[in-house]
């Protein structure tokens, strides 16, 4: 006689995972623990002040900078260069990218050129720019313009290329004019890529402005870091670097806001 009662086993769960979810407060906690360990290490002498100053000293340097009023001078100098260079580079890059996306002739002429010039580290060209535009603001603005131009061009025409062609045919089939199709179908369709390009170009702009100021400037966060470095005032150096980080975070936050506002329609 066979056993009619087979052994029953529960089916094991083997799915799940691979789905990142937001976990609040962990990020700031990691940051705080690191800074606290650093501070403790400096106070107990494990970390020599010559190697790395305590965070509290860097904060002290920052407060000093603020009280003396120099903070605003440096910030204003860096920000104005950044804004001027980035805005003009982005506008120009957007127009060139759009032209490459729309016209085969422009694409054939300019796309290889852009591909050739994009990977050049633009900071290597600063001496040339100083010769062309002088040691003042112009050479730094030109450097940022040049540095932000190429990623913007590449992201813009990539975005235009990716616009759903059936939407364009739809526009034509309803008798929309050329400008209407560009303005109402192609530009909004390319906007996600253009905003991604802005993330890249703002990061490049911040790197370039500091590099330029390290080489030749009296004012600006880069200049502040450069002076601190040559005096081995490591607390000021850390303060300057922390300012740059805040800079980058702020820009990132602004672009994330813009994306949420402008790309609400995305699934």
């Amino acid at each position: 006689m066979t056993d009619t009662r087979e052994r029953a086993r529960r089916v094991h769960f083997r799915g799940g995972g691979f789905a990142p979810r937001p976990v609040r407060l962990v990020g700031p906690a990691v940051f705080l623990v690191l800074v606290a360990a650093w501070e403790a290490g400096a106070r107990t002498g494990v970390i020599s002040p010559l190697v790395l100053p305590a965070p509290s000293e860097a904060v002290g340097a920052l407060v000093e900078l603020w009280v003396s009023g120099e903070l605003w001078e440096h910030l204003a100098a860096s920000l104005s260069r950044l804004l001027l260079g980035w805005v003009s580079g982005t506008v120009l890059g957007g127009l060139i990218g759009l032209a490459i996306g729309l016209f085969s002739l422009v694409r054939a002429g300019l796309a290889p050129l852009v591909a050739a010039l994009f990977p050049i580290p633009k900071i290597a060209l600063l001496p040339l720019f100083i010769i062309w535009f002088g040691i003042g603001e112009e050479s730094k603005v030109a450097l940022i313009l040049f540095g932000t131009l190429f990623p913007t061009v590449i992201f813009t025409y990539g975005g235009v290329d990716n616009v759903d062609r059936t939407l364009i045919r739809m526009g034509q089939s309803f008798g929309l004019g050329w400008f209407s199709i560009v303005r109402k179908i192609i530009l909004p369709g390319a906007l996600p890529a253009i905003l991604s390009g802005m993330r890249v170009s703002t990061a490049i702009a911040i790197i370039l402005i500091v590099a330029a100021e390290l080489i030749a400037a009296e004012r600006g966060i880069g200049a502040y870091i450069q002076i601190a470095g040559s005096l081995f005032a490591t607390d000021q150096l850390i303060a300057g670097v922390a300012l740059l980080s805040v800079f980058g975070l702020t820009v990132n936050w602004m672009i994330a806001r813009a994306e949420r506002l402008l790309l609400r329609w995305r699934p």
Binding site: D164, T166, L167, R169, M170, S173, F174, K184, I185, P188, G189, L191, L263, W265, R266, P267
Partner: peptide, 14 residues
């Protein structure tokens, strides 16, 4: 002459 498309062809941002 007006089309109705298979994949609807609606602008997702409108």
């Amino acid at each position: 002459l007006t089309y109705i498309f298979q994949d609807f062809a609606l602008l997702p941002w409108r």
